[in-house]
């Protein structure tokens, strides 16, 4: 109910009718897993450096149709974030500007549900660019994998503290590490987490 109302007001803000497809109700077994690399952890101040997104159909990860963009930052990369994702300024020479990348991203995701790890942050980062441009926030249905993990784990340790770190979840679910942390690999591994969680009742 709440979602319906907020969707309604959100849609009212839409500046360009071309993007009304984002609001179409989706029914099917596809979704999009995505992840952003950023210059920092504050959506208000920091920028997106890269976006990686992968479609899922049932238990299949369509990595052959992935979406990957490196984006020219508006401000200099700081030393801290370079240490984390190892994207240096010079790596972004072939990068595109953020506005066209966001449009391409919207075309890629369409009205598919979105899945991610700490998705709220990535959505906020995307919305930072979408809102001024289209007048809306991403209306797509959103699924947080760490929340599913939490719920399935909770059955086992009702009062326990659950370790929700990405690598801990990967390890606990016995999933193969698919390469270093960058946007597309993290999306890929998040996809694995999501599919595995869909296939198990609880985590032993």
């Amino acid at each position: 109910m709440f979602r319906k109302i907020s969707t309604y007001f959100n849609k009212k803000g839409l500046k360009d009718e071309k993007y009304s497809y984002l609001f179409d109700e989706y029914s099917g077994d596809e979704c999009v897993v995505f992840d952003c690399e950023t210059t920092g952890l504050n959506p208000k101040e920091d920028d997106i450096i890269s976006i990686g997104a992968i479609k899922l159909r049932g238990d299949k990860i369509l990595s052959s149709e992935k979406f990957e963009r490196f984006i020219k930052p508006k401000k200099e990369l700081n030393g801290e974030s370079i240490k984390i994702h190892q994207i240096r300024g010079c790596d972004l020479d072939s990068a595109k500007d953020i506005d066209s990348s966001i449009i391409e991203f919207l075309e890629f995701i369409g009205n598919l549900p979105l899945v991610g790890y700490y998705l709220e942050f990535d959505i906020a980062m995307i919305n930072k660019y979408v809102k001024p441009k289209l007048g809306i926030k991403l209306p797509n249905r959103q699924t947080e994998v760490s929340a599913i993990y939490y719920n399935k784990k909770l059955g086992l340790i009702p009062q326990g503290v659950i370790d929700l770190r990405f690598d801990s979840i990967m390890k606990d679910l016995d999933l193969p590490f698919m390469g270093k942390h960058d946007a597309i690999n993290d999306a890929l591994m998040t996809a694995l987490i999501y599919i595995k969680l869909q296939n198990i009742r609880s985590i032993s």
């Binding site: 299949k60 990860i61 369509l62 990595s63 052959s64 999933l175 193969p176 890929l188 694995l192 296939n199």
Partner: peptide, 29 residues
């Protein structure tokens, strides 16, 4: 560029007589 990834449960059939899509499968795990 053409690789997809698929997850299979234990005991799940991958190739049998009803198979419709044909792939070469590499086991990651």
């Amino acid at each position: 560029n053409n690789l997809d990834i698929e997850y299979f449960k234990a005991g799940q059939s991958i190739i049998d007589k009803d198979i419709k899509e044909h792939y070469l499968y590499f086991i990651i795990k």
